[in-house]
Write a protein that binds this DNA or RNA. Sequence first.
DNA 1: TTTAAAAAATAAGATATCTTAAGAAATGGT
DNA 2: ACCATTTCTTAAGATATCTTATTTTTTAAA
Lengths: 205, 205
Amino acid sequence: MYTNCPHKNPRTQNYTIRIFDHPWIIKTTEPINMKHFKSTKSKILSKGDILLSQGEIAKYGYFVKRGCLKSYVIDSTGKERIMQFAPEKWMVSDLDSIANKVPSMVFIEAIEESEVLFLSNSDFEDIDNLDKDIIVEMAIKFRNNLIASNKRIIGLLSATSEQRYTDFIETYPSLVNRLSLKSIAAYIGVTPEYLSDIRRKIAKK
Amino acid sequence: MYTNCPHKNPRTQNYTIRIFDHPWIIKTTEPINMKHFKSTKSKILSKGDILLSQGEIAKYGYFVKRGCLKSYVIDSTGKERIMQFAPEKWMVSDLDSIANKVPSMVFIEAIEESEVLFLSNSDFEDIDNLDKDIIVEMAIKFRNNLIASNKRIIGLLSATSEQRYTDFIETYPSLVNRLSLKSIAAYIGVTPEYLSDIRRKIAKK
DNA sequence: TTTAAAAAATAAGATATCTTAAGAAATGGT
DNA sequence: ACCATTTCTTAAGATATCTTATTTTTTAAA
């Protein structure tokens, strides 16, 4: 199921930009502006290519120029549970792994043909050496991500599956038509079959 | 059910400390060191006293000197869902409300007789004016909180109720004996009756 | 365009979790 | 120590969600 070779289609290009965020600023829930970053590595990925696997130490944040990535875990019953979708201008990685050098809990995989920048954290090992304005942006980005994650927790604790589905549609309208039913189900925490039931139930109304 | 008058037992004291974190650094999942803070307001709360209600704009972060608070939402079916417990040395507030001046989603309430510092965010409206070392600490605190929140999301998406309960016991062993079954149930996302069943099932093993 | 593969829909039966209600145990106040 | 209140346990029936299997539809490849 997850046998695609990472970077199997890597038409590497030279590409330098000034970008906004620190590589750590990942698991973002909103597009990022990248003026503070330098990146020289860009790759074209095919659907199904895996950038990071569970158990590896994350070396990069991935900024999506085109296409869409997902980060997900495989639970003890073998089911995929999606943490985050990363469409254009979003960044994704495993924050714990990249910051604390622990094995990644997540896989990161392209769900469309995608063009991705590899943002190394090697220049940023010591956060104290960063410019103040970058740190301010980091703090704000983390804070916004934390607020979003806490809202997702509230939803998972208190909303029904149907509510979580309609919330998802409202929150990410531009994503809905690009994602498979299976992916949305894995994000909101139900089986694809049950999400299909939910859709039918909603349609009948 | 939530009729206790906020601050009904407010033996206010003068109390000044140098503390570590910015008031925004809330919804924390770990004790905080407070060397960068000033606070002059301290109150003694009775069990059941409410510090912040859903719909209010949060003005303070609450640092727990003694006792334990909880932050929770009331969902559409009237059920309480706990976002965070805040025992000694932890801080709690509604981050979105205090940072963005939006109505709070949560209630904050004492679950034991508690002594709490009120940390105003009025001195910190503009994050750019903060000292760099405070901002660095903020960023790290937000980052760690975000990692913890994301782990909780993974648990809610992929673990069974029994697994979430045993995870909770492992993660917060010192809290388990202080909390009611009802509170733990509201945190892990099951009914108290079902958590009781889970305990019985575990005991039988 | 045709065909193979993947995704989605449907349905029936199984399981997890909730609801309601009642009794037992623990707690707090007087 | 006693009573009232809250918490916890237990159990039965209800509901939400999952599992498995099959069919239909859509997508991708040749």
